[in-house]
Design a protein around this nucleic acid. Sequence first.
DNA 1: TTTGTGATGCACT
DNA 2: GTGCATCACAAAA
Length: 192
Amino acid sequence: MPIDQKMKTPDLPFFQRNAIEVAPDLIGCLLSYHNVGGTIVESEAYEIDDPASHSFRGLSKANAAMFGQPGNVYVYRSYGIHFCLNIVCRRGSAVLIRAIEPVMGIPSMQERRRTSDIRLLCSGPGKLCQALGISLEDNEKLIGKWPFSLSCPTITASVVTGRRIGISKAVDLPWRFGLEASRFVSRKFLLD
DNA sequence: TTTGTGATGCACT
DNA sequence: GTGCATCACAAAA
């Protein structure tokens, strides 16, 4: 269920913090792209001194967006096939948006994803970008400005944590965040 | 239900 | 040449 509270677009200071602080705060926010989107239910933090982060080895052509303005979008190609969406935080850090609960423009998502199963539309970073139609061209756009939109509840959602997925370094850090009891995450969060 | 593997682009060593 | 911040589908059990 979407969090029914007063929503507002995060300001610049919101994104000028470390990704570890921003990532849990994004859970419960409504994210859309060309008016297609939903509630963020899963995110991961990547820091500049984090071996699993694309920014760890410094600035390059591919990761330039990560060193840009906080609140910018960073999109990269994964495994040659998929795109993944991040929101840039303090210099060199970013939050990977891993899953959303579909709310707006569901028919468009079903068409792009070639499935009608709501739970398979956006339950993973690659699926999410395919469902919304996000690509490399969206790099360095502002997350709060058209075609993107982001609005967050004024009250913090119930967040659970876990280990990040699909990485080979710094695997033990609990930098994955999810909306408690959401059925729309990419994988279950292990119970304590 | 869980596990294995191919597809595929490109930065980096 | 290697290694991915992945996904879908096949095969096992």
